[in-house]
C-alpha cells in the first residue's frame, strides 16, 4: 500500500510537467496580448512594446518558460499581470467559496441520490422508479444557468427567502454562510444527483439479482439491511468511481454556477484570468487543479480497497 501511495504521488510530477507545458504553450500561442489590453485605447505601438517588456513578454518562449519553472521550483506561482498580486494570494482568497460549494454539492448529492437510486432499483418499474429515472433525465438535460435562474426566480425574487447572489465566509456566521450556499448548491447538485442516481440504480439492479442477496433475504434479514449493507456495499465501486469523476468535474462545473450566483470562487477567477490573458494566474490555477485531480483519483482508488476487501495494492 505504501509503495502504491508513493508511486501514485510520484506520478504527480510528470502529470504537472506535461500539463504545465501544454498550458504555457496554449496561452502563449492563442490569440490575445495582455500588454495590448493593459496599454489602453490611445496607446502607441511604442507604449504597447514598453508594456510587453515590463511584463517580460518580449522574451523568447523558452526564456519565459524557464523563468516560470524556476519560480515554481521556489514555490512561487508568480504575480497576476493585471492586479499585480501574488497568484497564491489570489487563489487562496478564492478557495473557500469554491470548496464550500463543492463540498456542499457533493454531500447533498450523495445524501439525496444514493437512497433515491437504491429506492428506484428496489421498486423497479413502479412510479417511484419512473419518477427517479425521469427526474434524472431532467437533471441531466437542464443547463445549470437555467436551473439557477429558475431557483432564483422562485426562492429569491418571488418568495424572498434566499439571497440572489454572493458569498459570505463562514467566519461571519453559519446562518449567512448557509443561506448564500443553498441556491448554488441546489443548482450545481442537479446534474450530480441525476448522475449518481442513475449509476446507483443500475449498479443496484445488477447486485439485487445476485444469489447472495437472495440468500440474505432467505435468512430473514430485514430488507433495510439487505439493501443498504449487502447490496449497496457491493454496488459501491461504480458509485465511488462516478463520485470521484463527479468531484473532478465539479471543479470545472462551478464556473457557470459561480457566474450565475456571483460567487467569488476559483471558477470565476479562472474565467476572468483566461479572458484577461492573465497568464500567471491561469497557469497557477491549472497546475493546482491538476494536482487536485491526481489526488482525487488516488483517494478514489484507496476507497476501493476500503469498500471491497478483494482489492489490495
Amino acid at each position: 500500500m505504501v509503495r502504491f501511495l508513493f508511486r501514485r504521488l510520484l506520478s504527480i510530477i510528470p502529470v504537472l510537467a506535461i500539463v504545465s507545458i501544454i498550458v504555457f504553450l496554449a496561452l502563449r500561442l492563442g490569440p490575445g496580448d495582455p500588454a495590448a489590453i493593459l496599454a489602453g485605447d490611445s496607446a502607441t505601438p511604442e507604449m504597447v512594446a514598453a508594456m510587453r517588456a515590463h511584463l517580460g513578454l518580449d522574451q523568447s518562449l523558452p526564456q519565459q518558460f524557464l523563468h516560470w519553472v524556476v519560480q515554481i521550483a521556489h514555490g512561487d506561482l508568480g504575480r497576476s499581470i493585471t492586479s499585480n498580486q501574488p497568484v497564491t494570494t489570489l487563489v487562496a482568497s478564492r478557495l473557500q467559496p469554491t470548496l464550500a460549494l463543492a463540498i456542499a454539492t457533493i454531500i447533498f448529492s450523495i445524501l439525496v441520490a444514493t437512497p433515491l437510486g437504491v429506492l428506484a432499483a428496489w421498486r423497479r418499474g413502479t412510479w417511484v422508479d419512473n419518477l427517479a429515472s425521469g427526474g434524472a433525465v431532467i437533471g441531466f438535460a437542464l443547463p445549470a444557468f437555467v436551473t439557477g435562474y429558475l431557483l432564483v426566480f422562485v426562492f429569491a425574487l418571488k418568495l424572498q427567502w434566499l439571497p440572489v447572489q454572493g458569498f459570505v465566509p463562514l467566519s461571519e456566521g453559519f446562518w449567512p454562510f448557509g443561506r448564500h450556499l443553498v441556491l448554488p448548491t441546489l443548482t450545481l447538485s442537479t446534474i450530480y444527483i441525476a448522475l449518481i442516481t442513475r449509476v446507483t440504480r443500475a449498479s443496484m439492479l445488477e447486485i439485487l439479482g445476485e444469489d447472495f442477496v437472495r440468500t440474505a433475504r432467505a435468512k430473514g434479514l430485514p430488507e433495510r439491511v439487505v439493501l443498504f449493507r449487502h447490496a449497496l456495499g457491493n454496488s459501491a465501486i461504480p458509485i465511488l468511481s462516478v463520485i470521484g469523476i463527479g468531484i473532478a468535474l465539479l471543479l470545472g462545473g462551478v464556473v457557470v454556477t459561480e457566474s450565475v450566483f456571483s460567487i467569488p470562487g476559483l471558477g470565476r477567477l479562472t474565467v476572468e484570468a483566461v479572458v484577461a490573458r492573465d497568464y500567471p494566474v491561469v497557469q497557477g490555477i491549472i497546475i493546482l487543479f491538476s494536482g487536485v485531480y491526481v489526488l482525487i483519483n488516488l483517494a478514489v482508488d484507496i476507497s476501493y480497497a476500503i469498500f471491497d476487501p478483494r482489492i489490495s495494492y
Partner: peptide, 13 residues
C-alpha cells in the same frame, strides 16, 4: 457581478 440578470435581481432583492 459579471451577469447582467443577476445584477438586476440583486438590485430588486
Amino acid at each position: 457581478i459579471s451577469d447582467f440578470q443577476t445584477s438586476l435581481n440583486a438590485l430588486v432583492n
